[in-house]
């Protein structure tokens, strides 16, 4: 084989690898739609998305996933409120303030946090946080929105923190020097030069953290409580979409309406996560300062 055919061979080999991953992904999405869409021949899309009752095993069943969507969105929103300040500020501390030694320890600690299996975090929520919430606030159950949000936040923090830190780290040293040379303090430099220059990467980090939280299954299955109803307070139980799918899929007959409804829920979840990724992409362009650090 001469050099030229070798080059061509290698080129197509890599193309093949790239195609395989895209095709597998495409087939999964295809099967998701193939199994889910038939539901809409019997249930109207509007009734499915905005129906308030999820009684898939009743006779006649009702497939309204609105409470599930609300459950997913509310735990994600509260988890974001908790994890964004913690994750971003931790990244600022690690990247800009901490001495070298502390920096290394904190970085590996956060990586360790990222490596914790979600089921372990779920345990923690069930065994430690739930009883504590129940006793402290005198609740019927500690498995609720707050509990799930806290655990999801813990899961999202490593994502947000490590991607934000990369973005902060990528801010050119020249900007910092320029700021200090103009008589800015460390805090002024961080707040007015470094963070704005890294904003695009930080927004990406936040959106990816949120996408991670909304798609997370095990945690919400274990600690969200599982009540398919619109919550009235933060101490109510909810049944986010992934929890519903995971809990019910094993018991539903193949290609029954219930089965199709779970796949359709999967489609909704897929579209939501896709939306998060597209928003992440958009904001990372929107906040990009020319010449600034991006990922």
């Amino acid at each position: 084989m001469n050099r030229k055919t070798k080059e061509i061979f290698i080129k197509y080999l890599f193309l093949l690898f790239a195609l395989v991953s895209i095709i597998v992904l495409g087939l999964i999405v295809f099967s998701l739609f193939r199994e889910g869409l038939p539901l809409f021949s019997t249930v109207a899309v509007h009734d499915f998305l905005f129906g308030l009752e999820w009684y898939p095993t009743y006779d006649p069943p009702s497939f309204g996933i609105f409470p599930l969507i609300v459950g997913s969105l509310i735990v994600t929103a509260i988890a974001t409120l908790i994890s964004v300040p913690l994750g971003v500020l931790a990244a600022v501390y690690i990247s800009e303030i901490a001495p070298q030694r502390v920096k290394e320890i904190l970085k590996s600690a956060i990586e360790l946090l990222a490596g914790l299996p979600s089921v372990v975090l779920g345990f923690f929520g069930m065994v430690i946080i739930a009883p504590w919430l129940q006793e402290t606030f005198d609740l019927p159950t500690g498995l609720n929105i707050i509990n799930a949000s806290i655990i999801l936040a813990v899961m999202a923090i490593p994502t947000i923190s490590s991607i934000s830190e990369d973005a902060l780290y990528a801010v050119p040293r020249e900007f910092k020097e320029a700021s200090y040379a103009l008589g800015a303090t460390k805090f002024e430099t961080i707040a007015k030069v470094i963070v704005p220059a890294a904003l695009s990467g930080i927004s990406t980090a936040i959106m990816l953290g949120m996408a991670r939280a909304i798609g997370e299954t095990m945690v919400v299955l274990m600690v969200a409580g599982g009540a398919a109803a619109i919550p009235e307070s933060l101490f109510d139980s909810v049944r986010p979409m992934p929890a519903s799918i995971a809990a019910e899929m094993g018991e539903t007959p193949f290609r029954s309406a219930h089965y199709q409804a779970l796949f359709a829920t999967g489609i909704v979840l897929f579209l939501l996560t896709l939306a998060f990724n597209l928003i992440a992409d958009y904001v990372s362009h929107r906040f990009r300062q020319t010449g600034s650090a991006t990922l």
Binding site: E174, A178, L182, G183, G291
Partner: peptide, 20 residues
């Protein structure tokens, strides 16, 4: 040092305007 840097300005080798 912040006081000193306000009285003694500096221009660097590579132009480094802020992305503002």
């Amino acid at each position: 040092p912040v006081e000193i840097r306000r009285k003694i300005g500096m221009v660097f080798q590579k132009p480094n305007p802020f992305p503002k």
